[in-house]
Amino acid sequence: MARTGRPKAELKLTEEEREQLERFARRARTNRELAHRAKIILACAEGHSNVDVGRRLRTSGKTVGKWRRRFIEKRAEGLLNEPRVGAPRTFSDEDVEEVVVKTLETKPKGRTHWSTREMAKQAGMSRSTVSRIWRAFGLQPHIVRTFKFSNDPQFVEKVRDIVGLYMNPPENAIVLAVDEKPQIQALERAQPVLPMDFGMPERQTHNYLRHGTLDLFAALNVATGEVIARTKKRHRAKDFVDFLRTLDKHVEDGLEVHIVLDNLSAHKAPEVRRWLVRHPRFQLHFTPTYSSWLNLVERFFGLLTERALKRGTFTSVPALRKAICEYIEVHNEEYGPFKWTKTADEILDSVKRFGQRTTRVHGRLTK
């Protein structure tokens, strides 16, 4: 049967055009959009369909068709951004590229990162111009984020185990994400908090008085979002066993209990192991080292800090305990479960890509 639909425009490249497109494609760090469009045209020139090129380059067939037509009509100039209404540009593409390359590949003498003031002095342009260039290319030299690779030899197995519990929990069982939030401080602001008013945010002093600490044990039911919690003065092995007894009373008989938790020494103490032998329905699943993000209860702890603790002022440990219990009560009344969306394969692929980028940046790419 003959194919129907709009016919694909034929695309052929001269040697000069191919060299130019390959040069554009290598500029992924300085002009990502142009590099992506050049890769589209190079793939189209190999005879692939718009759908195949889109799948290969993670874009839509419609987008591929758009740049195919633009290139056929205007050749390489058709891949450039069209001029927009406004005052004429003061600086050329080369000036902009120089700022971007300097930002990505160099550092000012005696400093760890560029500021708009330093870059403006180097590039001979205003700070606002540098700022606009950085915003256009998504560059934020003033921001740094930390990361930590897990060195757990069973990282892959543990990720698959825990994500499997979240996404496909076993039958006749309950899955609980368990952890402690230690040393929560009862902090009282040194002076009274000034409430929010028209045109004025709430204001509080930066200094405070300390009134003691407490530890919070929490178990998040992955299926329902319910939180079972107890506060303690410390988080020793016997305190953890006491919390396990609380969970044993809370979970109805006949259900297996799968607990996701981290590698704290108190979780693996002899006292805990003896208790588990006497209660075989409890099974512990440990997260990989440096991978607390795999424990869903950490999301609950983040909300607790943001909504009940960070801006609170507490004159005593009992006042702090009351605030925590009130938040948990409201959470259990109003909130549903936290839905885990990434599969184990997606997580492992993401970790792999990040590791490859890291080694590539430091010149240690292995074969």
Rank of each mutant, 00 (worst) to 15 (best):
K66V: 11
G302Y: 00
W114G: 03
L79H: 04
L80E: 10
L214A: 06
V361W: 11
H285L: 13
I184N: 03
I328W: 10
N168K: 15
D239V: 09
G164K: 04
K102R: 15
K339G: 00
F147S: 07
N31D: 15
R89M: 04
N332P: 08
Y290K: 04
V85D: 08
G355P: 01
R203D: 00
A344L: 12
P83N: 09
K339N: 03
R29D: 12
E98T: 13
L104S: 10
F300R: 02
T313N: 01
L284A: 01
V130K: 01
L194V: 12
E97R: 11
A123D: 02
I174L: 09
D349H: 14
V330P: 00
F282D: 05
A123G: 04
F217R: 05
H48Y: 12
T343H: 06
L247M: 14
G212A: 08
A87P: 05
A43Q: 08
L365E: 15
L209V: 13
Y327R: 13
T103K: 10
S128Q: 14
K158G: 09
I40H: 01
V53Y: 08
H211M: 09
N263D: 00
T146K: 08
H331P: 09
Y208P: 00
R135Y: 06
E252Y: 02
R281T: 11
A28W: 09
G61T: 02
T358M: 13
V51I: 14
L365I: 12
L320F: 04
R89N: 12
K367N: 13
R29P: 00
K39H: 14
T129Y: 10
F286A: 07
K109E: 11
A219T: 01
G110H: 08
I40T: 07
E298V: 13
A38T: 06
R132P: 05
A229R: 01
S92I: 11
I184W: 03
W340N: 09
R37V: 06
R135M: 13
K352C: 12
L11D: 03
